[in-house]
Design a binder for these strands. Structure first.
Ligand SMILES: [Mn+2]
Ligand SMILES: [Mn+2]
Length: 536
DNA sequence: GCCGCTA
DNA sequence: TAGCGGCAACGCTTC
DNA sequence: GAAGCG
């Protein structure tokens, strides 16, 4: 400001932080203000109220901006900390559409002949851009005239509860509608959400749609909602391979649970039966990775998510075919441990409220010689999904250069697991140390991206390479295990070529995964043949 | 979710 | 017999 | 030695 050719001026404007596309991001400004340094603040000047003795508040807007532009001109470059906030006269609608497209927050419109007025007034208005967000499809209205569906009923999860948010009747063509109808019809359920119209047919809220809308009514319903497509994961179809059946029809017929309709968390969402059905559906793919490994179960037998607990020892009432054996702990005491060794025991665990399976990186037959190691990439706050993906690809290259064959799965949360099959030759101490070295080497290639230490605040905006899952008695969530969170995401093995096409790992969950697996099969089917020697 | 104790 | 309470991991790292 | 972490 000191360089401007002026003694005193009052300039109205806004301080912003721009992202790499030059778009103002409020969240980035908050970050910048709380962290103090490191980012570049920019002041956008949009009005001039006073200039060297002249009060300009009574002057027309177009004249004021003209003066402002002349005051600043000659002092600004594209990188200056002060920028002139330019305007467009005339076609407001076209500008608004373009702003929506670019993902801008919206448009401010002002009358060119207006004098300055602080606060709200009729001479200017703010038009928030249309936004696209995800909503659950909670129902639909049937309409023969429209070709099946009249409108989709939309829902939104808030604290584990589903609320009706209105409907949309536009955005789908004939083919899209036929597909939607085919998907929605089998999902019909009896109970309507509060506020849902009487002619709407409620469905299980398992499909998510991208919905564009302008704003919300006072009771939070969407205005001008437009269907922009289903949000779902898409995976590649490999050359057909025969599905090896590990679960027989007799096993399936024997599935039994008490309280099948018990909602796991809160008043809506998945039930105990959903868990049983999911594990029955994925068992053929999951069991090869689970059989005969010491396993810890994460159980949620009651309604309260806070009462969930880990169980690694044998327990009363256990399914009879769950195997029990002894393992010495670090104090040399014998403790009972368990493993799954047939489909019957596996399927029976749903009755005990088992949601998650966590396995050791070894088999009972050679307990002290691990056969799989895992690098758990944990994103710190502020890490984007695509950054985790590129970190995983980076680590893959590193491991392949060592002659190893890495596999990838989602963790079920926000991270990724890189799993490497190894020949069971080294002991736990050596394996843990070897993975520590690999993690440290990787971290050295990007100090700003990676950390290998657990505690430390520095995990913010970094990826923690957690190699400690490779210590004796440590576990990692098993391939295809669900996670005990509201929409039951699954830890999902992926083909490397599919990794980049996933944009939100929560789309891989108890409801979507069984169908996806019937076309993809298990991308880890050949993992055991890929075991190599881990350099000690 | 299950078991064992108590009223 | 209905109801209630106890119970269901662990080892390593970091402070 | 206690607290945090997964
Ligand atoms: Mn993780
Ligand atoms: Mn971790």
């Amino acid at each position: 400001f000191a360089r401007l050719g002026v003694k005193q001026a009052v300039i109205d404007g806004e301080i912003v932080v721009l992202d790499d596309k030059g778009i103002s991001r409020f969240a980035a400004l908050q970050d910048a203000l709380s962290q103090g340094a490191g980012t570049t603040l920019v002041f956008y000047a949009f009005d001039l109220l006073y200039l060297d003795g002249w009060d300009l508040r009574g002057v027309r807007l177009d004249k004021r901006k003209d003066l402002l532009a002349r005051l600043l001109s000659g002092h600004l470059s594209g990188r200056s900390a002060i920028q002139y906030s330019d305007h467009v006269e005339g076609d407001g609608m076209a500008l608004f559409d373009r702003a929506s497209e670019l993902g801008l927050e919206g448009v401010i419109s002002k009358r060119t002949d207006a004098t300055y007025a602080g606060g709200r007034s009729t001479t200017w208005m703010k038009s928030k851009a249309l936004r696209i967000e995800n909503f659950v499809i909670a129902g639909y209205t049937a309409s023969a005239a429209a070709g099946g569906i009249g409108a989709l009923g939309l829902g939104e999860w808030v604290d584990g509860e589903l609320f009706y948010r209105g409907k949309t009747g536009t955005g789908f063509d004939a083919a899209g509608m036929a597909n939607l109808l085919r998907r929605l019809e089998p999902l019909r359920i009896p109970d309507r959400l509060e506020g849902m119209p009487k002619d709407m047919l409620p469905v299980r809220p398992t499909l998510t749609a991208r919905i564009q809308y302008a704003n919300r009514t006072t009771d939070n319903a969407l205005r001008h909602a437009v269907f922009k497509g289903l949000r779902e994961a898409e995976l590649s179809t490999p050359v057909a391979r025969k599905r090896k059946r590990l679960i027989s029809d007799a096993d399936l017929a024997g599935i039994w649970v008490t309280n099948p309709t018990r909602k796991l968390f809160g008043t809506s969402g998945p039930t105990k039966l959903d868990i049983a059905v999911y594990y029955a559906a994925v068992g053929d793919f999951m069991l090869p990775h689970l059989f005969n490994r010491p396993v810890s179960l994460f159980r949620c037998p009651t309604k309260s998510i806070a009462d969930c607990f880990f169980q690694r020892h044998a327990f009363n009432g256990m399914p009879p075919t769950i195997k029990v054996f002894e393992i010495k702990n670090s104090d040399d005491e014998n403790k009972s441990y368990i493993s799954v060794e047939d489909a019957k025991g596996y399927l029976a665990l749903a009755q005990f409220g088992v949601i998650e399976f966590h396995a050791w990186g070894t088999h009972e037959r050679h307990l002290e010689k691990p056969d799989r190691v895992i690098f758990d990439l944990d994103p710190g706050e502020g890490m984007e999904w695509r950054e985790i993906v590129s970190a995983a690809v980076h680590l893959r290259g590193h491991l392949e250069a060592m002659g190893l064959v890495p596999f990838v799965k989602t963790s079920g949360g926000k991270g990724l697991h890189i799993v490497v099959p190894i020949k069971p030759k080294l002991g736990w101490k050596q394996v843990h140390a070897a993975t520590s070295r690999i993690a440290t080497q990787l971290a050295a290639t990007g100090r700003d991206t990676f950390v290998t230490v657990m505690g430390e605040r520095n995990r913010k905006r970094r990826i923690f390479i957690d190699f400690h899952r490779n210590a004796r008695s440590a576990t990692a969530v098993a391939a295809y295990s669900l996670r005990a969170r509201p929409h039951l995401p699954a830890s999902t093995p992926l083909a490397w070529r599919d990794l980049e096409s996933i944009d939100s790992p929560e789309d891989l969950n108890y409801s979507s995964l069984p169908a996806l697996l019937t076309t993809t099969g298990d991308p880890w089917a050949d993992i055991n043949e890929a075991a190599r020697d881990l350099p000690a």
